[in-house]
């Protein structure tokens, strides 16, 4: 019997759902032999209230009013997966946690509209129990397929917990630091296959940090080796890892 899956989105750009539809090839169609998609806003209009086997939640938890909907999803779903950086860690949304006047800066005269009444951005595990996380901005569709594959077999998915450097070295990518650039690969969680450094872009740690990031050494290396100013080095990893950093706002 096909496994019933549903997709839900919260505070995000829905880019991870788009990434999903980017499969468009045999791999995704083959996967559809094994799963039945019952709710997926970017690709279909149906909605259900039935129990689901796997709920994929995209987007961060950034409004108290979202808590109820998250709890309902949790109740309906056997397995909850936070996918994409926002849902997994708060992602780029968590930048606001360090920004006092963001509403005025972003929305100007509309800043008092009630739906903008938000709090600190966090991963959805701040509201409900999350079974697994698929990291990344956007999440990696190959990793997605692997996680789903493992779950279909009742196997706990293997989520990498080592730095992106591992993958760069295995790919024999020239290190950004050896090209006079900087990079966050030493603390960033791998699993993406390190495409950015291979394409000439430093890793921004969009998958968040590994479990034990050496933040102190990173700051030092960014300054001494990466040529960043002390100020920039200090906050460099905030873009995607604000909630993983030791200075994360704890509310």
């Amino acid at each position: 019997m096909a496994v019933r899956v549903a997709y839900f989105d919260f505070t995000c750009c829905e880019g991870c759902q788009i990434e999903m539809t980017n499969f468009g090839d045999a791999a995704f169609l083959e996967l559809l032999n094994h799963v039945e998609v019952v709710e997926f806003r970017e690709a279909m209009s149906e909605k259900t209230t039935e129990p689901i086997d796997i709920a994929f939640i995209e987007g961060s938890f950034s409004r108290e009013s979202d808590r109820k909907r998250l709890e309902e999803i949790r109740e309906r779903a056997s397995i909850v997966i936070a996918y994409g950086a926002c849902a997994a860690t708060g992602g780029i949304n968590a930048l606001k946690n360090h920004q006092g006047d963001y509403k005025k800066a972003v929305y100007g005269k509309d800043s008092e509209m009630p739906h903008l009444d938000s709090m600190c951005a966090r991963g959805v595990d701040a509201a409900i129990k999350v079974d697994y996380k698929i990291h990344g901005c956007p999440m990696d569709k190959n990793e997605f397929v692997r996680v789903v594959s493992h779950l279909l077999h009742g196997k706990e998915p293997v989520i990498p917990d080592y730095p992106v450097c591992v993958e760069c070295k295995q790919n024999e990518t020239v290190c950004r630091y050896q090209l006079g650039d900087h990079c966050l690969g030493q603390v960033a969680r791998a699993g993406c296959g390190a495409p950015c450094p291979a394409d000439g872009i430093p890793c921004e740690a969009c998958r968040g940090f590994v479990s034990n990031p050496n933040e102190e050494a990173l700051e030092k290396v960014l300054i001494e080796n990466g040529g960043l100013s002390a100020e920039r080095a200090k906050y460099k990893s905030r873009m995607f890892a604000a909630n993983h950093r030791s200075d994360a706002v704890k509310e």
């Binding site: 080592y162 450097c165 591992v166 070295k169 690969g185 603390v187 990031p213 050496n214 030092k220 290396v221």
Partner: peptide, 27 residues
Amino acid sequence: KDCFSCGSCNIVCPTCYCFDVQDNWNV
């Protein structure tokens, strides 16, 4: 002290040969 535990020194080493083994299904 400054180690990132990134394993780069292992991976590029010509005499390192440790490995992990994982199973994966095709689609």
